[in-house]
Design a protein around this nucleic acid. Structure first.
Ligand SMILES: [Zn+2]
Ligand SMILES: [Zn+2]
Ligand SMILES: [Zn+2]
Ligand SMILES: [Zn+2]
Lengths: 133, 133
DNA sequence: ATTGACTCTATAGTAACTATAGAGTGTAGG
DNA sequence: CCTACACTCTATAGTTACTATAGAGTCAAT
């Protein structure tokens, strides 16, 4: 199949596929006489794997590491497990940060109940430093 | 004060201050004979305002709008209030997305209890497409 | 022969900084 | 006076994972 069909089947855009190739996440496919990329179904599998990882928020570097790990099937998989654990930790702390942000924004919003003028806006007032003398 | 002191007092880095100036968020300050930037205390106030906004996740574009709004003190402040409301919405939905991600990652992690080989890793297995024939 | 859909490469843009390189300034100590 | 040191200057490139062109070429159908 050509790149357009691979894009449709994988859910990645055409440019993204070319980008992944440039970044070394997928290997360069065969070409037609007219220089078009041609992919087989293992290529679709590999791309789908990458897509699944991206959906879970793994970075391209991490995905690259996973792909490399898959080349030594006999080695223990602790690194894989560890990577997911680490990710869960990052996501958790991002959630905590956003929760705090959300609460702060709620408090800020309450400083200006109904419409006033810019001058009297409780939000702008709260954002402004009290004084820096 | 020079840029180093402003950086310390505001909590922004020196490069960030120069960047804000280039982006038009703060106005270009006076210069010494040796071409060093010199700031006064209103400049610190303005920078602190920006810092406060950034801490709440407002974009530089939004902050620019707030700064422009401050120039018409008599106008109503609905836009300010609306901006915060919109932000709260964005943060909320980001939290929801991350919660889902977190749950998905937890499920994925459970696919591989203890250490196995790469070949048998339940995580890699889950990430791999079943077949694309 | 020409249209239209598709593909190719190369390049620039996105957000908000961060990190240099290489040069100049200013001051305190010896 | 010289020099070491801390600070500042501009300009440029890098970060992440794409997205969006521009301009040219391919290919099948009409
Ligand atoms: Zn990670
Ligand atoms: Zn208001
Ligand atoms: Zn916003
Ligand atoms: Zn495992």
């Amino acid at each position: 199949m050509k790149i357009g069909e691979l894009a449709k089947r994988s859910g990645c855009s055409v440019q993204t596929i070319r980008y992944y190739e440039k970044e070394g996440l997928i290997s360069a496919p065969a070409r037609t006489g007219g220089n078009f990329r041609v992919y087989d179904s293992p290529a679709l599998d590999k791309l789908t794997f990458i897509k699944n990882c991206r959906t879970l928020g793994l970075t391209l570097d991490e995905i690259k590491q996973l792909i490399m790990l898959q080349d030594s099937p006999g080695r223990p998989c602790e690194k894989v497990n560890g990577m997911i654990d680490e990710h869960i930790g990052i996501v958790k702390s991002r959630i905590i940060d956003l929760q705090k942000l959300h609460d702060d924004l709620k408090v800020l919003r309450q400083k200006c109940g109904q419409a006033r003028t810019i001058e009297q806006c409780g939000i702008l007032d709260e954002l402004s430093p009290k004084s820096s003398i």
